[in-house]
């Protein structure tokens, strides 16, 4: 299977510009970058993709063993870099993809020029003095709710988004257009994301790094962004005056500017 098809790779922007690889996190797909892509495309070669299991990736390539570890997602990233022969890549990872970028740059340091971590967290669960923002009980509640499906992380979600439960084909269309999710795959991704602990990897990051956090973010609170940057050698931290976990949607101009400024610095 061709990696470009498998990961629904989309290349846009300036062909002669530095390569930016934008990686989505848990919950959606490359559509998350839709507001920053046009801005970045003016100056950079922008490469978008969906992890196997997300968006319009080839779901037949999904393996529970591989995608139960963040290393499996990092393998997707490295395979895309090889397939497109990307060099001196700037990897931009949102949410859990920030740690995927950390793992990918450690695995193949020569491949990457810089690393941008958007609302990163190396561990969501509190641990001793470390504040991840969630207690183990919180995460257990989340995972339990995923198992029982009662939050609607299920196939039933798409039809109700459209408000046409009697015409499920409409829901399917919409689900395909945006954050398409297979509930079984989403459960594995959630578990992998929220139980991961990559704190020990941070000091090993071999490339210049920028961390972008939001002033208000319940998933990755400010002290986590500070922690990440303290642990990565020579990391720069930018706090955007934005709310939520997705500044590329809530503050696209400021997010794009922070990324562009760092790449060109």
């Amino acid at each position: 299977m061709d990696v470009r098809t498998r990961n629904n790779v989309v290349v846009t922007g300036r062909e002669d510009g530095p390569a930016l690889l934008l990686a989505h996190g848990f919950g959606c797909d490359q559509n998350l970058w839709r507001l920053v892509t046009p801005i970045l495309a003016e100056r950079f070669r922008v490469v978008l993709f969906d992890y196997v299991g997300s968006g319009r990736s080839d779901l037949t390539a999904w393996r529970p063993q591989r995608y139960s570890r963040l290393d499996g997602y990092a393998e997707d990233v490295l395979e895309i870099c090889r397939a497109l022969d990307l060099r001196d890549v700037v990897f931009v990872g949102h949410s859990v993809s920030a740690m995927v970028g950390v793992l990918a740059t450690i695995a193949e340091p020569d491949r990457f020029a810089k690393l941008v971590l958007v609302t990163p967290s190396p561990r969501y669960v509190d641990d001793g003095d470390y504040r991840g923002g969630f207690s183990q009980a919180d995460i257990d509640e989340l995972l339990e709710s995923l198992e029982s499906n009662y939050l609607g992380w299920s196939a039933a979600m798409a039809p109700v988004i459209m408000g046409n439960p009697d015409r499920p084909e409409l829901g399917r269309e919409l689900q395909n257009a945006f954050c398409r999710t297979d509930p079984a795959i989403a459960r594995v991704f959630a578990r992998t994301t929220f139980l991961a602990d990559n704190r020990a990897d941070l000091p090993k990051v071999p490339v210049p790094t920028l961390a972008i956090e939001c002033a208000q973010d319940v998933i990755a609170p400010p002290e986590v962004g500070r922690y990440v940057c303290d642990q990565i050698p020579g990391c720069r931290l930018v706090t955007l005056d934005a709310t939520g976990h997705c500044p590329q949607l809530s503050a696209p101009e400021a997010t794009a500017e922070a990324i562009a400024g760092f790449v060109e610095s």
């Binding site: 919950g27 949410s95 988004i161 945006f178 954050c179 998933i219 939520g244 976990h245 949607l249 809530s250």
Partner: peptide, 8 residues
């Protein structure tokens, strides 16, 4: 809400 609802 943060990973699905708000982005959608």
């Amino acid at each position: 809400h943060e990973t699905h609802y708000a982005p959608l």
